[in-house]
Design a protein around this nucleic acid. Structure first.
Lengths: 123, 123
DNA sequence: CCTACAGTTAAGCACATCATTAATTAAGGA
DNA sequence: TCCTTAATTAATGATGTGCTTAACTGTAGG
């Protein structure tokens, strides 16, 4: 454990694997045990367990114990954040709006100086 | 080069890093040189170059040579796919619809046998 | 109690990722 | 031509990922 990554990174990273995306797809049909989840994949149980750990760390699933079974439930809230980020960067419209915004700021603040640099971070 | 990952995985993986997301944000305001791009970060140029390579591999940027400068341009098409995937899995509504669909299929195909297993993959 | 079953933990291995510094390529200007 | 600037490539290193098999934990049932 070096330096805990931010929520969004965890979510995107969790989605960056076909097996994990398939698991999420599967979980849309309702809570499922690890065994059922593992069945379609040519992969050992521990491998699936590890994928589930990644999904859990990203807040995308919840595991509840039920006798000797672990019932996995999908949590879609983190997907909302992911969706919001992507949509904010997706379309032309936003892009042009930002460009205009930037031009206006440039004209206002510094007609003489070299570009003021807005220190734009991610968010 | 082991086993080329699918497009979606490349995109999500590219988004799974704050620096790269910040670069994308920055590029929304229009094409930018690598130097300008690197400036806000406490990180060496080569590090940025590598991040750009990841973004390029995911189809999220295009680099065009202009004298000794490389002009980076944002390409948002891959984000559309990402957005589509996330949205398909995001909301309750889809979830319930799928559940209903599954129930109906179960009733139709196998009132006696044990669950038929739909071999649901990612998509 | 002993065994079977569901699942996780642990250890190991190949390979990817994210950063570094040093060397290289390529264009422009004195 | 020589030097500077912009950027990439190469080599290196620490750390993370994705899988494996083997061993462990915990619950149910004879």
């Amino acid at each position: 454990m070096t330096d805990a990554p931010d929520e969004l990174s965890l979510v995107f990273q969790a989605l960056a694997d076909p097996t994990r995306r398939a698991i999420i797809s599967r979980l849309r049909s309702g809570p499922t045990t690890v065994g059922e989840l593992a069945e379609p994949f040519a992969m050992s149980r521990p491998a699936i367990s590890q994928h589930l750990k990644v999904l859990e760390r990203a807040g995308l699933i919840e595991r509840t114990a039920d006798a000797q079974w672990r019932r996995c439930t999908l949590r879609t809230e983190p997907l909302d954040e992911a969706s919001a980020w992507v949509d904010r960067h997706r379309n032309e419209w936003n892009q042009r709006f930002d460009l205009l915004d930037q031009r206006l700021r440039q004209l206002k603040t510094a007609p003489t100086a070299s570009t003021p640099r807005t220190e734009r971070t991610d968010r």
